[in-house]
Nucleic acid binder design. Structure first.
Lengths: 108, 108
DNA sequence: CCATCATTCATCCGTATGGTTGAATATACC
DNA sequence: GGTATATTCAACCATACGGATGAATGATGG
């Protein structure tokens, strides 16, 4: 996809179970790339790519310390996305309810 | 992506501005495919494909009425995703806060 | 009946994604 | 200095995505 907004990046980054698992792991604190990759079946390189996607979405920050790259969770984009989602859900639910009300008034 | 869970479908369906706009439109009530497609620059066929993605995610229901297909918004998957997102955000924020607390106790 | 309208199906194209493997780079350690 | 370690880069592959266009299907309406 040609992605435009931060929301696009956040949602498409989250739409993958491997990446969500990586985030869960990082909630346990700063972790090296190899250590992050350890529990997954796929190659280290594949995990490295997933990490890059998470960085692009701003969900992960990288701190290079010698030859090790330490990864940390950044919740800011998740907060934004979560707020967006709940707002839309509520707004749309309200609109649908309004429509329903009007329909029931017309056919009582 | 090889998608597995409903959450995967929901999030990747939402990670596209055109599809989010379609949902917004459907919040105004049942709408025919052509009518949904009208405000977009792209072809009707392209919009039709987006609609199929939204259906696969369960966000849109289709009711065929003669030659017209009426599309309706279904908020259930959005509720699930919204709940998931807020739960994870809160959980991960709490874990990070706990880690921070421990670090500050060790270096006072 | 026949033309029109609503929609999908089929095909094609360019690009992105998720994965692999092998090489390159850079730091750490003895 | 030389070897092992951590990580990325580069190339490749299969498949999916987002879009276009043209044909097919199916219902409507005069």
């Amino acid at each position: 996809m040609v992605e435009y907004t931060p929301l696009d990046h956040t949602l498409s980054a989250l739409a993958d179970p491997t990446r969500r698992a990586i985030l869960g792991r990082l909630a346990g604190g700063e972790t090296r790339v190899t250590e992050v990759a350890e529990p997954f079946e796929m190659s280290l390189n594949a995990v490295s790519k997933h990490i890059r996607v998470l960085e692009r979405a701003g969900l992960v920050r990288r701190r290079v310390h010698g030859r090790e790259h330490l990864l940390a969770l950044d919740l800011a984009p998740l907060e934004t996305a979560s707020r967006w989602m709940e707002e839309q859900r509520a707004l749309w639910a309200w609109r649908l309810a309004e429509l329903d009300k009007i329909l029931k008034e017309k056919k009582p």
